[in-house]
Structure formats: structure tokens, C-alpha cells
Design a protein around this nucleic acid. Structure first.
Lengths: 198, 198
DNA sequence: TACTATTGTGGAACATCGTTCTATTAAGGA
DNA sequence: TCCTTAATAGAACGATGTTCCACAATAGTA
């Protein structure tokens, strides 16, 4: 005898799964992120994740792409001074990570087995990186920074900011005040960029 | 009918397993790192990993601790100038990561499900961090750096260097010359520390 | 309102994973 | 030589991602 108790309305399935996935990622981390667990929390059959997304990795890719779109929006800052813009972008990056733990986990912190971003997702990521290159180019053009290669400089700026945020989110902090330590990191970075190479 | 073909000598088992584990981590990454795969490559029964280590996580902890001991050794640098020492330590850190991919993966790059460092391992890690704090303290004492809190400054120095190395090892590099980019990162960091806070 | 196509459901099944248990038997010291 | 030690093969368990299936609730249409 078969009993199909309830059934989530077609349109609500994707939203429910998405919300459940983010909730589990945020609360339990990648370890609790299983197909069955997400489905259960969403009040949905495990099969839904294969019907609406393309399995677990498809769901991850959805969150990945969505995260980069959000990050791009969060960092859409354009102050008069490009140096101020760069600093504000650093703060925006950290704030995004703290407020979108689930997204950030998927985007930067954890490598899920067998997951590779789709073409579209990778392009979104590249575009976010392009913005960073642009800002740094403007800093160089105005003479605020030494004549550095913007592409290379973007790489190390990203490394520094992301490196710090990753440690903070993984609770690998030995200093007491995370906010103040981040501020000092930005100070160091900005001062170094302005005066580096002698 | 039972056929136990050959049998690895007691003393050699641990070494064989250790070597196989590092080889798999280095070549295949965390995804290929399964108990059965390690045992097979070591020419040993899967049970050996439970007899000689304490399961998969025990083996990981062994590599973790060994890695920190090696890193501590690699960074045991003491030049006359503490600023030179800090810069040399940065280079040593990166070199260690590149030359000990397997160890670095376990120590910093990948979080294995359910793995938590043992007390002894955590202490080894803390001691390595302590060295960094000491070097920075000396930089502050000699007046080479602004009067920064060494503990906090160590946090952001680690974040910057590790952030860069992590990107390089994950092949998330958009700049061409990794060596030169790292050099510029150290330049920026050192210059920023010397002149930050006005 | 009645009918039908869509599609979400529960459940079984598969291979693989870490892990435990068992019985066998090779290795090494007495 | 014998006997203890310990490394082996293999089955088994639960959990994982994934696929397939039969069934029925939903939604649109006649």
C-alpha cells in the first residue's frame, strides 16, 4: 500500500530546497550538507534535487553562481577616490562573507568532492575579479599607488583580504578583536601599496 | 579457501602507509585519499590503518603533526635583522607548502570530515605560531615596525602569506608569475608594516 | 465538473565510503 | 621446533550520491 502524504507545490520546491541548503550550510557546514538532509529540511523528496537541480553538484553550482551575483552587487561601490573605493570594497567583501556564510563556504572556503563551477558560474567569478582589477588600475592612474601591474596587484590584494576572511570564518583567530585586526590588515595593505617598491 | 599471499613485515607497515598516504595526497588530492586506496598503494591490508594508526583520522593526525614539526624546522631562521628574518620566514613558508603539498593540504588547505587535531598536534601548531609572534615582537622592539600589537600583527601576517599560498596551491592564480607576485606581496606587506598607522 | 498529463512522492537498489568483526595464517622470537 | 604476535582476506553495517520505478496528488483542459 502506498501513501504519498503531502506534496509541495511545484513552484515552491526550488525555493524550499535553496533555503534549506543555505540553512544547513550556514548552521552545520559542509559536513551536514547531504542530499537527504537538504531534502528533509526542505520538506521534499530527495529526488526533487535531481529533478529541479542537477543533483548535489547542480545545487552547489546554483548557490555558487547566486553568491557571485550577490557579491558583485555588494561590491558595486564607486566613491570619488579609487583608494577609498578599494578600502570600502575590502570591507564589503568581509561583510558579505559574514552575512552569507553559506554562499561564501561554497564560493571560496570548501571544495566539494567532484564539484567544478559551470561555465556561467566561472564567468561570474571572473567578472567580480575584473572589478577589482579596474579599481586598482584607477588607483595606479591617479598616482595614489606606485606604477604596479594592476592584474598582479589584484591577485595579491585578493589573497590578503580573502586570506584574512578565511581564517576568521574558520575560527583560526589568535587575536582578540576580529574587526580591529581586519582594519589593521587593510591599513597595512593600503600603506604598503602606496609606498611599496621603495 | 583462504589465500594470504604476502605479508609486509611489522616494522615496515607504518612507513609504507605514511609514504602511500602522502603520495596519494600529493598526486590525487583529498578526494583520492580513502582508506582502501592508501592501503592498496602501501601494499597493505586496510586493517593496518586501524592497527597502526587510529583509523583514517589517526593517519591524518600523524601527517598533521609531522607537518608542523617540519614547518617549524623549515622556519627555524634567525638572521641578525628581525625584518630580514620575517621576510625569509615568509619565503620558507611558501617553499614548505610547495615542497610538502601533502602535508600542507592536511594542515591548512582541506578540512577532512570529522578530523580534529589532537592536543599534541594543536600544541605543535600553536608553537609554530608563537615563533611568528616572537619575530614580529623583535621587529617592533628594534623600531623597524610601528608599535603594533605583535599578537594581532602575527594574525594578519599569517593571513596574508597563507592567503596567497592557498590561492597558489589551489591554482586560483590570475597573474602570470607566481614567484614574482609573491615577492610583490611580501614587499607590500613589509612596507605596510613599517609605515602603517600614519 | 470530469478527465488527463504533469510531476512530486516513497521506496528499493547500486557502488563506494569509513569502520568493525571474524577466522585464518604468515612471521618472528623462545 | 613450537607458540605467540600480528597482518591478512572477507563479510558486514550504516551512510553517502545516484538511478530507477510504480503510484498518486496536483494542475490544466475539455
Amino acid at each position: 500500500m502506498r501513501v504519498v502524504t503531502t506534496r509541495t507545490s511545484s513552484h515552491l520546491v526550488e525555493g524550499a530546497v535553496r533555503a534549506a541548503a543555505l540553512q544547513i550550510l550556514t548552521q552545520d557546514g559542509p559536513e551536514g550538507f547531504t542530499v537527504r538532509a537538504v531534502a528533509q529540511r526542505a520538506g521534499v523528496a530527495p529526488m526533487a534535487i535531481y529533478n529541479h537541480f542537477h543533483g548535489k553538484n547542480g545545487l552547489i553550482d546554483r548557490i555558487f553562481a547566486e553568491g557571485f551575483a550577490d557579491l558583485h552587487r555588494a561590491m558595486d561601490i564607486d566613491l570619488d577616490d579609487p583608494v577609498d573605493t578599494l578600502r570600502a570594497s575590502g570591507h564589503a567583501y568581509r561583510r558579505f562573507a559574514l552575512e552569507h556564510r553559506g554562499h561564501y563556504l561554497v564560493m571560496f572556503l570548501h571544495h566539494f568532492e567532484g564539484f567544478e563551477p559551470s561555465m556561467e558560474s566561472a564567468e561570474l567569478a571572473a567578472r567580480a575579479y575584473g572589478r577589482l582589477v579596474d579599481i586598482i588600475s584607477r588607483c595606479v592612474d591617479t598616482g595614489a599607488f606606485e606604477p604596479l601591474d594592476p592584474r598582479r596587484t589584484a591577485q595579491l590584494v585578493w589573497a590578503m583580504v580573502h586570506g584574512y576572511v578565511a581564517l576568521e570564518m574558520n575560527h583560526q583567530m589568535f587575536a582578540d578583536d576580529a574587526e580591529k585586526t581586519f582594519e589593521q590588515m587593510l591599513d597595512t595593505m593600503m600603506a604598503g601599496l602606496a609606498h611599496s617598491l621603495r
